[in-house]
């Protein structure tokens, strides 16, 4: 494996986010190094997407510290995240159905020359990026509403290839994909790692997770519930942490009500 740099690319400390009575994230710690793919797993509602949105500048945590390259940063908006080199594929994809593929790829970072969009240039880049993903998109001028779920996902993933990001967050990027296309996306993730990026992969598919990630972080009821080496840990261990059969050191779970165990099967 590639040797890790000492300072993580992204560090999150004590991240807490509440929605009224719901504790989406409680005192969560998280790290990603360059050249590393970290999988974030957990049951539905565990807080995975919320954590991804904190990195993406969509959700501002109630408390906690975010550092990039060891420097404390605040990520108040998606634009700020973009500037800090974070690219995100959201779970609900966040695409505009009325715009074509090129317009969606470049949304929020259109190329312009003296105020005028450079449509030809953007289309050329769109074409080459989609070709790299060997996505089966009919044309870069197809409106998004004409694409299948998998094709839409390709467009969302292709967005992370633009603007040379350093951290890529993928929230269930393969949910709608065929076996062959899933394999392509996993290869794509491996290539991002080779390029020295830090990748956060959220997925419910343990095979995908174990195939591509270096480390697996488990969230349960908005709390850290274990960190596993993807190569050395067993399938049962990880599932145990997700479902609550396996628990982290009691100290960090002190505030969790006991009846949650029953609720989480």
């Amino acid at each position: 494996m590639v040797e890790r740099t000492r300072t993580p690319l992204l560090t999150m400390r004590g991240i807490t986010k509440r929605y009224k009575a719901v504790e989406a994230l409680v005192d969560v710690n998280f790290e990603v190094h360059a050249h590393e793919v970290v999988a974030l797993v957990g049951d539905n509602g565990a807080g995975k997407s919320t954590l991804a949105k904190v990195v993406a500048g969509v959700v501002v945590p109630d408390s906690g510290l975010v550092e990039i390259d060891g420097e404390p940063v605040s990520i108040p908006s998606p634009k700020a995240a973009q500037r800090l080199g974070v690219a995100t594929v959201f779970q609900d994809l966040a695409l505009c159905d009325n715009l074509d593929v090129t317009a969606n790829l470049f949304l929020g970072r259109e190329m312009r020359n003296a105020g005028v969009m450079q449509d030809g240039r953007m289309e050329n880049i769109a074409r080459s990026v989609l070709r790299d993903l060997s996505s089966r998109i009919p044309s870069v001028r197809t409106p998004l509403s004409h694409l299948s779920a998998g094709q839409r996902q390709s467009v969302a993933i292709a967005r992370t290839l633009l603007g040379s990001p350093r951290i890529v967050v993928l929230d269930e990027p393969t949910a709608a994909l065929s076996v062959a296309h899933t394999a392509e996306v996993l290869t794509h993730i491996e290539r991002l790692r080779e390029m020295g990026l830090g990748v956060i992969l959220i997925s419910h598919n343990m095979n995908d997770v174990r195939a591509v990630s270096d480390r697996i972080e488990v969230l349960r009821h908005g709390r850290n519930n274990g960190s596993f080496d993807a190569q050395r840990s067993s399938y049962e261990e990880i599932i145990g942490a997700i479902t609550g059969a396996w628990q982290m050191a009691p100290a960090s779970r002190a505030s969790a009500p006991a009846d949650r165990e029953a609720a989480g099967r």
């Binding site: 993406a56 908006s77 998606p78 959201f90 966040a94 505009c96 949304l107 929020g108």
Partner: peptide
């Protein structure tokens, strides 16, 4: 929503 998430 998507426009906002994309940095618009």
């Amino acid at each position: 929503l998507a426009a906002g998430l994309s940095g618009v």
